[in-house]
Computed example of a mutant assay.
Amino acid sequence: MNHSIIDSSSDRPFSSIGRFLLEMGKITPEDTNRILQLQKEENLKFGDAAKRLGLITDVDLQQALSRQFEYTYLPADNKKYSEDLIAAYKPFSAQVESFRVLRSQLLFRWLSEGFKTISIVGANSGEGTSYVAANLAIVFSQLGKKTLLIDGNLRQPRLQGMFALKQNFGLSDILIDRTPRTELLNIIPDIPNLTVLGAGTLPPNPQELLSREVFLQLVKYASTAFDVVIIDTPPINQGSDSQIISSVTKGAVLVSRINQTTIDEMRSLKIQIQGASASVIGAVVNNF
């Protein structure tokens, strides 16, 4: 059936909701006649008529609307990714609204100045840098920004598991020239505009690898191909990796966890990041 269904209550093509519902498998071509008939009789929107007939649920309609407005998110029954990706699974929650506020601040204070790269840095393990990096990358992608998320934690990486990456090679393998960089980029099909580069093979010398010129060149190359580049980093108490990464990105968002990170630790983190000639462009207090 031609998906250019005409709304029988007007002379204009009806909204793309019907097409998306068809593509999602929520309705059949045969259902559309019943929906259009009820739509005409009750003067309803297509989606509301489909709901009235019991053909779709509120969740189905929200999914279709998200596609129509290019604001894709994941249905709860999609268990492919980590539930920590709340920006993808619960985009209308208060937590995700906080990520959107952070995104706006970074747009105004950093990206509008011509910068594209951001490192996410914490003082200690368990403060949620990967959580912040992943969800911040998702909300940027939902804005239509072509976003690259890099796992720069070459000690205890988390992004491969969070995004169910099948590629075992990644950043570390690029840094030792084991494989071409473009082959390792993971386009996330369920989250348009988002690409992830995993950490790759865990090396015995992460600081030395990140200090190589090839890392600087990789980040420069990425900033020409993407609108936003976000790099997750290991905690600063595990070494100077995050300082090295921040010296390349030139800007860092500091992450702390409520009732865990001390003020002195955050002061020390700020001093160390600024000592790496990077700007502190934001701070997040995690409570998850």
Rank of each mutant, 00 (worst) to 15 (best):
I6S: 12
S10I: 14
R12P: 00
P13M: 09
F14K: 13
S15E: 15
S16Y: 11
S16K: 15
I17L: 13
L21A: 00
E23D: 14
E23H: 11
G25I: 12
I27W: 03
T32D: 13
T32V: 15
I35M: 03
L36F: 09
L38Q: 04
L44I: 02
K45N: 09
L53W: 01
L55M: 14
L55S: 01
I56L: 05
V59N: 10
S66T: 09
R67G: 00
Y71F: 15
Y71L: 14
A76D: 11
D84M: 12
L85P: 01
A88I: 03
Y89R: 03
F92A: 07
S93M: 10
Q95P: 11
Q95M: 06
V96Y: 01
R100N: 06
R103C: 00
L106W: 00
L106I: 08
L111G: 01
I118R: 00
I120N: 00
I120L: 07
V121W: 04
V121G: 03
G128A: 01
T129W: 03
T129M: 11
I138A: 05
T147V: 10
I150M: 05
G152P: 02
P157G: 14
Q160D: 08
G161T: 07
L171F: 06
S172K: 01
L175R: 03
I176A: 05
R178T: 08
T179C: 09
P180S: 10
P180I: 04
P180L: 06
T182A: 11
E183D: 15
I191R: 01
N193G: 02
L194G: 00
G198A: 11
A199C: 09
G200L: 01
T201A: 12
P206G: 07
Q207F: 05
E208Y: 06
E208K: 08
F215M: 11
K220F: 08
Y221P: 02
Y221K: 10
S223H: 00
S223Q: 09
S223P: 04
A225Y: 09
I231W: 06
I231A: 01
T233M: 09
P234D: 08
G239V: 10
D241H: 05
Q243L: 15
T249H: 05
A252P: 00
S256K: 01
N259W: 08
N259G: 11
I263W: 10
D264C: 03
D264M: 13
E265W: 04
M266S: 09
S268I: 14
L269R: 04
L269Q: 08
K270M: 10
Q274I: 12
S277W: 05
A278N: 04
V280R: 00
V280E: 01
G282L: 02
A283I: 09
V285M: 14
N286P: 00
N287K: 13
F288C: 08
